[in-house]
Simulated scan of single mutants.
Amino acid sequence: MTNRQIKSLMCIAVVMAAGLGVAAPPAAAAGRRVHPGDSIQDAVNAARPGDIITVMPGTYYENVLITKRLTLRGFGASTVIRPPVTQAAPAAPAAPDAQAGAGAAAPGAPAAPARAATACSQADTGICVMGTPEQSVDEVKIRSLAVSGFKRNGIWASYTDRLSVERVISEKNGTWGIAQERSTRGVFRGNIARDNTESGIFIANTVAREGGATDTLGAVIRRNVLTGNRIGVTVRRVRNLSVTGNLLTGNCGGVFVVGDEGEPGAGAMTIRNNRIHENNKFCKGNSRLPDIQGVGIVLTGAEETVVRGNSIRGNVGASPLSGGILLFKSFVGATNTDNVIQDNVVRDNQPADLANQGTGTGNRFVGNRCGTSVPAGMC
């Protein structure tokens, strides 16, 4: 092909593109950098929806409130957000999150960003992502940073859609490591949540009241490392999510699925391919919940949940909740119904590898490799 022919074809292509209305590629998201000594919050306030804020290595002493679509990313463990040196007056402590009928104190359900800012500060939380009942905050991404030592939560989200938290370290916080309520399609992947007073990862319909489970529209908790917490993962009064490929060890309990008597029931979820080993830390009980120690997976008030292909070993304790996989009688009268416990390796858990308590119906234990069960005969 001659040069003249090539040029002619290029001209034709340009004319065709113009005729078909082919647009120029969209402009890349604007980037902002925050350095030690700068304010992350100032950068968030100045950002336009869709901006990427890169937080350089260093320690930042502040709370961060996000009320718009953006990406906040750091450099892993070398980018650390810690409580401000001058703390706001602490809020009343939250109730333990595993209580089947009781709600923990909420960091606030704001009707406007100003209320959200107040709630975030009073809650002593590292990063708050706050929408409103009228307008969710969509597609916020939090990446590759650490939040440590806050009086309540490392990361808290309310009224969000498609929130993504990945490769975050959330440690030594006074309630939850990473928590979300009233939200849909969240993705929590590749995080480390350790040594938090309550759950490492906590997903709920709402923490302020009881009520029927809400549909998360496919929330994902995947490939996280959860250790040293009261409970590794708690999913409370929600439906339609997956807990897959996580490592849970050294907590008081591994995974709690908690429902109540409301409709629709909690469940319709998958707990699959997790390693839940030696969660033998001791946590004292309270008026609504017994002591927690040696707990693998507990379902209480759950329905249509599939627990499959997990490795659950060496969870040992003397609590009524202790053991490998337990369908537990609910304190508020909710039953476990139509759950499938299948193809799990459940070994060396005490007092039993598998236990089915309460009056629920339609629960099936199929193909599990285990040594002991209550009642006998399920292994």
Rank of each mutant, 00 (worst) to 15 (best):
V235K: 06
S287V: 13
P90L: 12
E181K: 09
I341K: 08
N153Q: 06
V207E: 06
I142F: 04
A105L: 13
V44E: 00
C120F: 00
G245W: 08
G200M: 08
K68V: 05
K68H: 02
T244V: 14
N240V: 02
G254M: 06
V137G: 01
P264E: 11
P133N: 03
A17F: 14
A268D: 15
A193K: 04
R48V: 15
A302R: 09
A213H: 07
V55D: 06
I231S: 05
G76F: 03
N344F: 08
S199K: 01
P36Y: 04
T300S: 11
V243F: 08
Q293K: 13
S183Y: 00
E181D: 11
R82I: 12
K141Y: 07
V295Y: 11
Q350T: 15
A88F: 01
T79A: 03
S78E: 15
H277Q: 04
L145Q: 08
V306T: 08
T216S: 12
A104T: 13
A91K: 13
K68M: 04
G218V: 10
A29Q: 12
T227I: 05
L289P: 01
G301N: 11
C252T: 13
V80G: 07
P110M: 11
T59I: 12
G262K: 11
G371Q: 12
G324R: 04
L321R: 03
N205D: 14
K281T: 10
N45E: 12
K284S: 14
S199H: 03
N315S: 11
F150Y: 09
N3V: 10
V235L: 13
R143M: 10
S136M: 15
P90F: 12
G360I: 15
R347V: 02
A213N: 10
Q99N: 13
R308N: 14
T359N: 05
V346I: 11
T118I: 07
V14Q: 03
G333D: 09
L72G: 10
L72C: 12
G254S: 07
V235R: 11
G218H: 12
N310Y: 05
S158N: 15
M130C: 05
N336I: 15
N173Q: 01
N336Q: 13
D161Y: 00
V306S: 03
N356M: 14
D343P: 00
I178N: 08
A88E: 05
A157H: 00
C283M: 07
I142A: 06
M16K: 01
N153T: 02
A193R: 03
A123T: 01
G360F: 10
G19K: 07
K141L: 09
V187I: 14
L20H: 10
R222S: 13
A27K: 09
N153Y: 02
V220I: 15
K151H: 11
V306I: 07
G301R: 12
T175G: 00
P133H: 03
A213T: 09
A100D: 09
R194L: 01
T79W: 01
L163P: 01
